[in-house]
Computed example of a mutant assay.
Amino acid sequence: MVWPSPATTGVPAGWRPKETRTTDLKITRAGAVVKDIRLVNADLIVAARNVKVQRVELQGGSIINDSTSSCGNGLVVENVTLTRAPGRLTRNEDLPAIQAGGYTARRVKIDGRPEGFRVAGKSLNCGRVTIESSFARVVSPDVCGDWHGDGIQGYDGPPLVVRTVTLELVQRSSCGGTAPFFYPAGQGNTSVDVDGVLVKGGGYPFRLAMPGSVRNLRVVDRSWEYGPIDVDCSLVTAWDATVVTVGPDYQPIRTVRQLPCNTG
C-alpha cells in the first residue's frame, strides 16, 4: 500500500489556475463543475446537490456545503489543495478545511490548517462522507486560544468511510489539539468503515468511540503523547492495526509490532 503524502495529493504538479478570486464563490446550480480556480482568503460555498470540485486551490478559505438548511449532498472534491492563507495568522476558531457531510474527497491535500475534514450535518440530512487517497496535516494555530484540532473529526456525523488516508497532527507544547482521527461518542455520530489510515501525532493518534470496522490502521511509533489508540473496542466489529516507523514521505519503513484493540 502506498500512503498519500503532500507530493501525491492536491492539485497536480505544474498546475496553474485559470482564475484567481479573493471573494467567496457560491455555487447554486445542481450538477455544476468547478475547476482550475484559486481562491485566496475566500470560501467555496456549495449550495446545490451533485457539485464537482476539481483542481481547485484554497489559500485560507474553506469548502462549505452546509450554508443552507440542508447539505449539498453528492459533492465530489478531487485533486484539491487547502493551505493556510499567505500573510495571515491562523486561529483556533478557523473553520474546518472541508465541511460538513454528503461529500466524497479524493486526492485532497490539507496542509498547515488548524482543522481538517469535518464529518457533520446528520441533523441537516447530510449524507455519508467518503475520504479516499487523501492527506491532512493539521497544525497548531498561530493564535491558539481553546484549540481542539483534528485531521478528521465527527460531530453530528453521518456514516464515515475512509480508504487509504494519511493524517498528521503537529502541535506545539503550549497549544495541543485532539487527534489526527477523532470520531467520539456523545456528539451525535453514527458509524465508521475504515480500511487504510496512517496516523501520526496527538495525545492518542486514533480515537474512536462509535460502531464500525477498522482495517489497515497504521500508527507511527512514538508519535503520541499518551498512547497509540483510544478506542471503545466493544463496538468494533473488525480490527487490524500495527505500529510502524515511517520516512519523510510517510511510507512505512518497519513494522514495530501488532497493535491489539485493548482500550475502552
Results as ranks from 00 to 15, higher is better:
residue 10 G to H: 06
residue 10 G to R: 09
residue 11 V to H: 12
residue 11 V to F: 13
residue 11 V to D: 14
residue 15 W to T: 08
residue 16 R to D: 00
residue 16 R to K: 14
residue 18 K to N: 13
residue 19 E to C: 03
residue 21 R to G: 01
residue 23 T to W: 07
residue 23 T to F: 12
residue 24 D to V: 09
residue 24 D to M: 10
residue 25 L to K: 05
residue 25 L to N: 02
residue 26 K to L: 06
residue 27 I to Q: 02
residue 28 T to E: 15
residue 29 R to P: 00
residue 29 R to I: 06
residue 30 A to K: 14
residue 31 G to I: 01
residue 31 G to D: 02
residue 32 A to Q: 13
residue 35 K to S: 14
residue 36 D to L: 01
residue 36 D to C: 05
residue 37 I to R: 13
residue 40 V to C: 10
residue 41 N to A: 13
residue 46 V to S: 06
residue 47 A to V: 01
residue 47 A to L: 04
residue 48 A to E: 09
residue 49 R to D: 11
residue 49 R to Y: 05
residue 50 N to W: 05
residue 52 K to L: 13
residue 56 V to S: 09
residue 59 Q to E: 11
residue 61 G to N: 07
residue 64 I to Y: 11
residue 65 N to E: 04
residue 68 T to G: 03
residue 68 T to W: 00
residue 69 S to Y: 02
residue 70 S to E: 14
residue 72 G to T: 09
residue 73 N to H: 01
residue 73 N to G: 02
residue 73 N to E: 04
residue 78 E to T: 15
residue 79 N to Q: 15
residue 79 N to I: 03
residue 80 V to F: 08
residue 81 T to N: 07
residue 82 L to N: 02
residue 82 L to A: 08
residue 83 T to Q: 08
residue 84 R to Q: 13
residue 85 A to C: 12
residue 86 P to A: 11
residue 86 P to S: 12
residue 87 G to H: 08
